[in-house]
């Protein structure tokens, strides 16, 4: 694809190429046509039109970015959830293993308190880990986009 206006020579060459392919029966003066076609200056503000077109496309682009982010978050969260049962099972196993010596050293109330705090910390850790997925995706997604024009 060519996006500049051809000069007369180029036009003549293109015309001769096509007229040659058409055979001698085509009684067309390539020089005359080239002169006519080249005398067609274009005065459009394509840069201004491009700017305005980009402005018109921004809402749709934002919608697409948001839809893409949601799709990615869903996929990543689903993938991250897959090993969760094993992690929870292991955490429960470790907790039970630790609870026996802790219960032997501390009073039952204090041992239960330590266990509950441990469970809460693990829950908080999992929560923060999963919440970080959309935040990190959102940040990496925004890195490639210039801020919207005021």
């Amino acid at each position: 694809m060519n996006d500049r206006t051809p000069n007369e020579q180029e036009l003549r060459r293109r015309l001769q190429r096509d007229l040659g392919e058409a055979g001698a029966s085509a009684k067309v003066d390539a020089d005359l046509l080239a002169r006519i076609l080249v005398a067609s200056p274009i005065a459009v503000d394509d840069a201004g039109m491009a700017r305005r077109a980009l402005g018109g496309m921004r809402p749709e682009l934002a919608r697409r970015r948001s839809a893409d982010l949601h799709r990615q978050v869903l996929v990543r969260v689903m993938l991250a959830v897959v090993p969760l049962p094993f992690v929870v099972a292991y955490a429960v196993y470790v907790l039970r293993a630790l609870y026996v010596p802790v219960a032997a050293l501390l009073t039952p109330d204090l041992a239960a308190y330590v266990a509950v705090v441990h469970i809460m910390l693990l829950t908080l850790l999992f929560g923060v880990t999963y919440a970080a997925i959309p935040m990190m995706l959102s940040r990496s997604g925004n890195a490639g986009h210039p801020p919207a024009a005021a």
């Binding site: 980009l54 919608r63 697409r64 970015r65 893409d68 986009h145």
Partner: peptide, 10 residues
């Protein structure tokens, strides 16, 4: 562009 990349559109 299908994913809303503004730089690609520009």
């Amino acid at each position: 562009v299908a994913r809303g990349d503004e730089v690609a559109v520009e």
